[in-house]
Structure formats: structure tokens, C-alpha cells
Amino acid sequence: MPNAHPKPLQLPPIRLAAAGLAARRGERLLFSGLDFTLAPGQLLLITGPNGAGKTTLLRLVAGALTPEDGTLVWQGIDEDARPQALMHLLSHRTAIKPRLTLSEDLAFWQAVNGPGPDAFEALDRVGLGGLDWLEAGLLSAGQQRRLALARLIVSPRPVWLLDEPTAALDAEGDAMVAALLADHLGQGGLALCATHLPLALEGADIVRLRLGAPR
């Protein structure tokens, strides 16, 4: 992987505080009484068995679901700003259109999400350098995941919500995700990451949250 040096860009300082958070999916109470706070530069690492509510917690934070109980408070953002526009979402649904080329995909999401680094730089960073002319439908699952990660780079945002970011990635991809996360946290960003795999993040400020089996 080419050695990229991220610019010493600073993201707006944002804090997230959750108090007594509970979520229900259908009949089942997935979790309740969840408290955590995240400050700039901190990573919330969410672990737990399948069905424990990791994705649900991310969707709560993303604002796609309303909590059954408890509150989620964003500090450091304007009153009338949409918190959604501060977050990047990465999930198994990669929103890749098979007939668009990689550079078209990144240019589109950059136009939608906000300006930032060059698409070529981002593709280099995720290990897809030189493939910008390729149609995204020709990529493997791991490469599609890398393309989705490149979107996080082209539009810098303070909050990353990552659902299994290393799924479908090889060992070198795992390291790349860890490096991206370290850079993001270093710039004062927050991240919430649901994962099974241990991420090689030394020296990062990690808040660990383990969700139990649903009751």
C-alpha cells in the first residue's frame, strides 16, 4: 500500500452522549440501560454475538431508528444542523452501482457528501489505485468494500459509523482499515465500530462496549 500522509486537517470537535439507551426490534428487547460518551478522537468498539443489536445501535446513532428508551445527545453541532450530515455510514449494503466507474462513484458521493481530498488519492489509499476507469460491478466483494471506504476519505466528516468494516477484506485490508481509523481519530474524529475481529489499533483511545445476548 502506498504510504499516504494525511494532511493535519482538524475535524470539528463533536461529542456524543448516550444515556439509558434501549432498543426493541419487534418483540425482543435487544439492549437497555446503555450509557456511553464519546469525545473527539475516541472509538467506540461494539462487540457481541450475532443478533446482540450491534447494527441496531449504529442505526439508532444514525437516526434511522428511534430508541425505545433513553437519549442520544450530540454536543458541538448547531441547533438546526442535521446530525446525519456529519456522519459516514459503512455497512454491508455498499450502495455500489455496477455500471458506474470507480471515479464516477467517488465523484458522485463527494458531490453529495461534501468536498475533500482527490478521488485518485483516496483510491490509492484503499488499494484500488489505477482502477479508477473500471466499472464497479467488476470489483470483487472485498474491492467493493474498499471502494465504500474510499468514500469516507473523499468527504471528511467527524463521525464514522462502521458496521463490520473489515468484512470481506484480506489481512492487508484489515491493516488498511486500522490505519484509516487511526488517522480519522488522530484528526479528532469519532468512530463507532461494530466488529467481531480484533482491530490492530495500538495507542488508540478505545471505549469498549460488549452487548450481551438478547433477552
Binding site: A62, A64, L89
Partner: peptide, 8 residues
């Protein structure tokens, strides 16, 4: 879902 997180 991603468009909902866009600036628009």
C-alpha cells in the same frame, strides 16, 4: 440510506 446522510 446513504443519500439520507448527504448534505441535501
Amino acid at each position: 440510506a446513504l443519500l439520507n446522510h448527504g448534505q441535501l
